[in-house]
């Protein structure tokens, strides 16, 4: 069974159609890269999955559960919105770390807030918080940031900040981890360390959607690639196939720029 099914998503801002009839699905443990020029709708698609935008049409189904269906009343869509969001993790282009918290606090904050809602929180407060703390530390170690846990975001390089953001997104163990151009805001010499971390996650079969402009990275790391242009999926398929032997003329034109 697919972990994610996206069916006929449409989204417009005013009279501009940003997404038109976008459908795809994903297998558990696979990595999907979405490529396309700026303004093609890739980021909007990702934001729809995280409910930062509400699609005008279509449905989103995770592990067989319909999280969103535009045909249902809006009230019902907003119900349990927080819980629905937790199926997805999001890594932003501009990191969006919380500046007033250390790297470790950034990673553990949301987990701690959610733990407060657990019925046994009062009883086992100490154990629960310690567990969250050590989970956070383990994630930062995995990101190669063992020495940086107590640093504040402004004391970290862009690459380090983005790795903290990845750890923060992983902390809630989402079904699908989304990356919105994770290296676009970084200096060229810092992109490598972030891509390496994402590659490591792919090797562990983390289910991921990566919006990226790094074509060779997409080719090597992703299992599937979607090429988008003007809000529609022009071509999708096996990653190497799409990059090395694109079927569509528009895909070919786009790829010659890289």
């Amino acid at each position: 069974m697919s972990v994610l099914e996206v069916k006929n998503i449409e989204k417009h801002f005013g009279s501009t159609k940003v997404l038109r009839d976008v459908s795809f699905d994903m297998e558990e443990g696979s990595a999907l890269a979405i490529i396309g020029s700026s303004g093609s709708g890739k980021t909007t698609l990702l934001r729809c999955l995280n409910f930062l935008e509400v699609p005008d049409k279509g449905s989103i189904i995770v592990r067989g559960e319909t999280l969103f269906d535009a045909d249902r009343p809006i009230k019902e869509q907003e119900k349990d919105l927080r819980r629905k969001r937790l199926h997805f993790g999001m890594v932003f282009q501009s990191f969006n770390l919380f500046p007033q918290y250390t790297a470790l606090e950034n990673v553990t904050l949301s987990e701690k807030l959610l733990a407060k809602e657990r019925p046994d929180f009062k009883q086992n407060k100490k154990e629960i918080l310690e567990e969250i703390e050590s989970h956070g530390k383990a994630l930062l170690e995995q990101m190669g940031l063992a020495e940086r846990m107590e640093h504040y975001p402004h004391q970290l390089s862009g690459g380090q900040q983005q790795r903290v953001a990845i750890a923060r997104a992983l902390a809630l163990q989402p079904d699908i981890l989304c990356f919105d151009e994770p290296t676009s805001a970084l200096d060229p010499e810092l992109t490598g360390e972030v891509l390496k971390v994402i590659r490591g996650l792919a090797d562990q079969h983390t289910t991921m959607i990566i919006v990226t402009h790094e074509m060779s990275f997409a080719r090597d790391v992703a299992d599937h690639i979607i090429f988008m242009d003007e809000g529609v999926i022009v071509e999708q398929g096996d990653a190497r196939q799409v990059i090395d032997h694109p079927k569509e003329e528009r895909t070919r034109q786009f790829l010659t720029k890289y």
Partner: peptide, 27 residues
């Protein structure tokens, strides 16, 4: 306070008041 701060809180499953008090207020 950048919009991204609120959005980061939202995707991490925080409530509106948690976002205000834990993320936005001090900034």
């Amino acid at each position: 306070v950048p919009v991204g701060q609120r959005e980061a809180g939202e995707v991490l499953g925080m409530t509106k008041s948690q976002i205000f008090f834990k993320v936005t207020l001090l900034q």
